[in-house]
Write a protein that binds this DNA or RNA. Structure first.
Lengths: 233, 233
DNA sequence: TGATTTTTAGAGTAATTACTCTAGGAGTCA
DNA sequence: TGACTCCTAGAGTAATTACTCTAAAAATCA
């Protein structure tokens, strides 16, 4: 049986993701759990510590994934790997959604977050570096850095962005998954021009796999008709 | 002399950007202006309408920029043009920072925002389409779409992301400008592999111009080293 | 068992905050 | 002048909300 502390975190996470941290009061969390506010405050000094604890879980989660050894790295494996990362980030999407507020409100959290980003980028550079060594991507140092930053911006913003555009807080798991796949698709778009050898062979297959069939393109590229025209001109 | 209504909007914008909309109360806005809360509420039914009015200003601002005719389009011009867009977005950065909350709280605003994004993407596709027609970028339809989405994600997230990482709310104009230039640099990184002809010739020059000398690697890829900008023009 | 510590309930509070209401000044037009 | 509208002040309020306090149940230990 999970401890009360754990249950508070789990419920908070669910509510934060669904309603947005700003709209979830501590009383609301307690009520959802069927415990008293006093009990909640016995386990967490204040609301901020709940957020901080969730960030800890989030960052541990992500860093663990990033530490995982992987033997010979192919582009396909790497992409699948990124898919896992994005899924983890989606689980804690409330965090990136209100990131600036949290960092503004909690100096210590800000420092931990900064360190976290540094490690993520560092590790990401290693991964891309390995791909380069294997001749899978063809980039110079500068392009590698640019690519890494863009990948991170995309991943860390994707959830919030997509969450803002999707139809009303309908808890549609199928849609969510499709949106995450679209995120990976966009990363593939980032990498595509640099891909060589093995990766190039799998490119179309991978694009097809992650390309959002209907719903996703509908969301971001709605009824944008621009392409038919520019193609023929 | 600007009307009270305008002054309320201006002050709100300033405070929202600096403190975050969440931390700025209506009383606070009134106080900053030296007017009474009652007066504020005479001009705006509630806080949400202030946000909505600011979004209107923001979207009009951006759409006007996007409508601007431009004659023959070079990559250099386009990049300079994007710089203007990003600067406008930076002026209203509070909006993208709390975007999901605003959309969640105001159905009508959500609809307007969705329409806004559609127009922006549409217009962006036209611009990239023109570059393609001129042989400046070499992409197929699918790559064009992918590029467009990534550009938009990058631009609309950049302010919030960077704001979260920069040192404490120091109102450092020089730093801000450097960060915006870095945003353009990242877009250049997105486009670089597709560039041909004229653009390719100006690539290094443009990269040099927008590359943040210290701050780039500093903010996102390391620690901020006191901002020692060596003669940049 | 009794003693002690951990966990819980739940009423309560101080502070905040979005917003209201009334009354009156200030400009305009007759 | 008076009447009418626009604008402003500022006291006040209802509701929310993060958080406290006391006491008791439950678990742990001697």
């Amino acid at each position: 049986m999970t401890s009360t502390k754990e249950r508070i975190l789990n419920t908070s996470l669910t509510l934060f993701n669904r309603e947005g941290e700003r709209n979830v009061t501590t009383n609301h969390i307690a009520e959802a759990l069927g415990i008293s506010p006093g009990n909640l405050y016995y386990h967490f000094r204040n609301k901020g510590t709940i957020v901080a604890a969730l960030f800890e879980r989030y960052s541990q989660n992500l860093l663990a994934l990033l530490e995982a050894p992987q033997g010979p790295l192919t582009w396909t494996i790497k992409t699948h790997y990124f898919e896992g990362l994005l899924a983890s980030m989606w689980q804690y999407r409330f965090f990136h959604r209100d990131l600036t507020h949290f960092l503004h409100a909690d100096q210590a959290l800000a420092a931990r977050y900064q360190a976290f980003v540094e490690v993520v980028l560092e590790r990401g550079l290693v991964i891309y570096g390995e791909l380069r060594s294997s001749g899978i991507i063809d980039v110079d140092d500068e392009q590698l850095q640019g690519l890494m930053v863009n990948t991170w911006v995309l991943m860390s913003s994707w959830a919030a962005l997509v969450h803002g555009l999707r139809p009303d807080a309908a808890a549609d798991e199928a849609l969510d998954e499709s949106l995450m796949r679209h995120g990976i698709y966009q990363i593939i778009c980032l990498e595509e021009p640099f891909l060589r050898g093995e990766a190039r062979e799998h490119l179309e297959e991978m694009k097809a796999r992650y390309r959002a069939v209907d719903t996703t393109s509908a969301l971001l590229l709605g009824h944008v008709p621009g392409l038919d025209r520019t193609g023929s001109e």
